[in-house]
Design a protein around this nucleic acid. Structure first.
Lengths: 212, 212
DNA sequence: TTGCTTATTGGTCGCACACTCAATAGCATG
DNA sequence: CATGCTATTGAGTGTGCGACCAATAAGCAA
């Protein structure tokens, strides 16, 4: 008897099952895109019947929004941990750029691009994107503000600087599905770092390394 | 008898009909998005039967790519006319930014965003996006290069400058479906102009006006 | 006017989707 | 061990999509 067939029902607590569903949907979103979050696809992922997904998310749009928020939210925690007690703002920013420049970040770029486009048609998702946009901007602004206080950075408007960095990052992210092979010449890939160093009054190369 | 019902067939030359179909699809793409280019939707637009669209475009993906190329290509001609014999590079750039900053440009921003995401799934579209990307970059680089020659602009690397401007423009375009109301504070909306003036060694405000 | 080429139609097929709901069966509780 | 709650299933509905193809008629040429 093939072990892949699930002949016995597995009954879980609503909270656990719901979390499981969101996690599976987030995985699909990152790997294949938000429009691949379908009742059938997510159900298959968890080896349950599509009706069960509908039971927890009567409107699939809400699952899409939730999955997006989950994926992007935990990525932010990875990128700019909320409790940054141990390292300097400079090291935090360097870590930020090290990760956002890596190829592993492409899936995240794709997800942002995906979500920003799909927002056009799905109100629930649009709201979530706004929330995450604010969260990313606030978190980055916080780091910059800290750096200004310690004297590591120099900028008159931390918020504007944060926005500027994110705009450049988004602009490069637009190319992720397209850029011939590697994503263009190195000078282009380093545009976000260059922008940050310029706007923060840092010598070139300060944020380029790859610390812990 | 209602005039809206088409009881008599209208037979056109293949070239004319094909152009008509592409134009209609481009309109749908700009107004509603590339995923709304369906056999049924385009046929309705032209008051013909869906089968006719299939006849001219056996694979709908090719029509999508063609419609995108048509819309974005003619927008580029509007933005940066190929034969720029009459005005200075500065005036051309000012015109460029005047239009790209206007609200009327939002549909174009949406289309770029749309196309860049959809490229993930549709190879034909992906190729077209690459072509248009190159065209926009080359055209902008040309204007910058001219300006450097006349001494109006000052930059060591016209290509890199062009890319930088387009990246910022794309980054702002990411917000088009989302940005609360107007698209953020004025300082943010002017980011592309600010970037251009900085990178071209121009005094602030040089490119901000709205010439012819 | 007649005939012929072919642009255009009308109808159909199969697929994937979200959503609904009564029936079923895990499993905790007593 | 028996029972009740409810998580889970299975089956079905309706919609919109791309693709396919034989039949039809527009309009040019003879």
């Amino acid at each position: 008897m093939p072990s892949s067939v699930q002949n016995k029902r597995i009954r879980k607590s609503p909270a656990a099952r719901r979390a499981e569903i969101v996690a599976a949907a987030a995985g699909v979103a990152l790997a294949e895109g938000l429009e691949c979050i379908t009742l059938r696809r997510v159900a298959e992922e968890l080896d349950v019947r599509p009706g069960l997904i509908s039971h927890y998310f009567p409107a699939v749009d809400d699952l899409v929004a939730e999955a997006y928020g989950n994926a992007v939210g935990s990525e932010l925690d990875e990128l700019l941990p909320a409790d940054r007690a141990d390292a300097t703002p400079t090291r935090h920013l360097a870590r930020f750029f090290a990760r956002t420049t890596g190829e592993a970040y492409d899936d995240v770029s794709r997800l942002w691009l995906n979500a920003r486009h799909l927002s056009r048609y799905r109100p629930a998702l649009r709201d979530r994107v706004s929330v995450q946009e604010d969260a990313w901007r606030d978190r980055l602004e916080g780091v910059i503000r800290d750096g200004v206080e310690t004297g590591e950075f120099r900028t008159e408007d931390p918020l504007m600087t944060a926005i500027q960095i994110l705009v450049v990052l988004d602009g490069l992210g637009m190319l992720v599905n397209n850029a011939s092979a590697d994503g263009g010449p190195p000078a282009v890939r380093r545009l976000p770092v260059t922008t940050a160093e310029r706007e923060l009054g840092l010598p070139a190369g300060t944020l380029a390394g790859a610390p812990n």
